[in-house]
Design a protein around this nucleic acid. Structure first.
Ligand SMILES: [Mn+2]
Ligand SMILES: [Mn+2]
Ligand SMILES: [Zn+2]
Ligand SMILES: [Zn+2]
Lengths: 148, 148
DNA sequence: ACCTAAATGAGAATAATTTTCAATTGACCT
DNA sequence: AGGTCAATTGAAAATTATTCTCATTTAGGT
């Protein structure tokens, strides 16, 4: 029997960390757990608070360090909000885009890529070589639309 | 004869300000000038520096206040960079998207909208109502590609 | 030329992020 | 199971970013 229950998201993160020779610390796994459990985008300090709830005293710097590392590894993605500010969501290394509810910051996956077959010729004529893209949809989720 | 040379971008901003009953101050027009002159995305402190070069002593708070207001008015747009951080670009109230050179932060307009006719049905089935979107392309401009 | 509400500048206050470094710990090897 | 050691962490300080306050200035209307 497995020594404890572990989500596929958590084992995915452990695997990526191991491949890169990085350690699977309790703090790092807690960040994964918190992000994948929450259906919404979380700010750095929200993540910090929830990790403290799980593990007790935890340095805020560790949260910053972990999120930066996870973003580089493609484990999490940083989302931006209209009025400024940002939050993180779990993305498990997949190329996905997200819809964000502007009221509750709920995050919904969006697997189709709107620029998959997009014709960049008009911009590539200017010599610009497109290498990546960032797409985010804003709107209201069912709950918030009903509440309004 | 006109009392001085004024770009269409600057007169556009003056017009929007007047319509809203807001004042066309030297500081606000300098921000417009700086942004539309520079072909690249500028950080708050870069804008502050350039405005000081034009006008002399200028409060940093004024730059923050102006950029927030201009963003609400649709005069400028805030762009985000991969490693974190952001910058502003002029957009003159148009619905455009932007390509950003990851090396020099040069900004290139991108008038076609990749999600114009995009089928949101798969996501709207979840009840999410899409109201807006944010799209940004990353890559290299000609100059930076050659330099590399 | 006034008048007046809007806008500004300077600095204080607050918030966000990064750095430093001694102590801890996870992964690997007996 | 215990030993080793580089990686990681926590706490606090340092730095950087942003907002607030309020006395003074100014744009735009009369
Ligand atoms: Mn995509
Ligand atoms: Mn668009
Ligand atoms: Zn919602
Ligand atoms: Zn470039």
């Amino acid at each position: 029997m497995p020594k404890d229950f572990e989500s596929s998201q958590e084992s995915y993160a452990k695997e990526v960390l191991r491949e890169k020779g990085l350690k699977s610390t309790a703090q790092r796994l807690a960040v994964v757990h918190v992000l994948h459990t929450s259906g919404k985008s979380l700010s750095v300090s929200e993540i910090h608070q929830e990790v403290k709830d799980m593990l007790g005293a935890t340095g805020l710097a560790t949260i910053y360090r972990t999120l930066e590392m996870f973003e580089d590894l493609g484990i999490v993605k940083r989302l931006h909000f209209p009025g400024g500010g940002y939050g993180y969501t779990f993305c498990q290394g997949r190329h996905v885009h997200h819809m964000v509810c502007v009221d509750c910051k709920g995050v919904f996956d969006f697997p189709e890529c709107p620029v998959e077959n997009f014709d960049y010729s008009s911009v590539e004529k200017q010599g610009f070589r497109v290498k990546d893209h960032f797409i985010q949809l804003f709107g209201q989720c069912v709950k918030c639309a009903e509440a309004a």
